[in-house]
């Protein structure tokens, strides 16, 4: 049981570090938002579930925290992306297509 929990936790820790590396390295606020949301949600979920597997008496509390993160992290990142689009943050130079141009302009006036 301890070995399974350590494996799940190590998987999550690697994803947390990769998400933070994406926050540091990527060129644009939208790219950073994608890296920081997807990797961090999976990483935090599996780290907390791994701790719950290693300590079985903590499992239900850990499950509550993990499900809460799984529900609220996409909502907050969606709100941040919409806000940065409407407040006029430009895309990076390598972007090929921008399908939400009208939506962003509509918020700027």
């Amino acid at each position: 049981m301890h070995l399974v929990g350590m494996l799940v936790t190590g998987f999550g820790v690697i994803f947390l570090f990769l998400g933070s590396l994406g926050i540091f390295r990527l060129p644009d606020v939208y790219n950073r938002l994608q890296a920081g949301t997807k990797c961090t949600t999976l990483g935090a979920f599996s780290t907390i579930i791994g701790v719950g597997i290693m300590e079985p008496s903590w499992f239900w509390k850990c499950l509550i925290i993990a499900v809460f993160i799984l529900l609220t992290n996409p909502i907050s990142s969606h709100a941040l992306g919409r806000a940065s689009c409407k407040s006029g943050v430009s895309l990076c130079k390598k972007t090929v297509v921008n399908k939400s141009k009208d939506f962003c302009k509509e918020g700027k006036k």
């Binding site: 936790t9 999550g12 820790v13 947390l16 998400g19 933070s20 926050i23 606020v29 950073r32 938002l33 920081g36 949301t37 961090t40 949600t41 990483g43 935090a44 780290t47 907390i48 701790v51 850990c62 925290i65 993160i69 992290n73 907050s76 990142s77 941040l80 806000a83 940065s84 407040s87 943050v89």
Partner: peptide, 22 residues
């Protein structure tokens, strides 16, 4: 820009939540 900092703080907070559990 300001949204960059907001995104960075949001990600750091989620990472810190997992760090506290561990």
């Amino acid at each position: 820009t300001a949204p960059d900092r907001a995104v960075a703080v949001d990600t750091a907070s989620t990472v810190t939540t997992a760090l506290l559990v561990f």
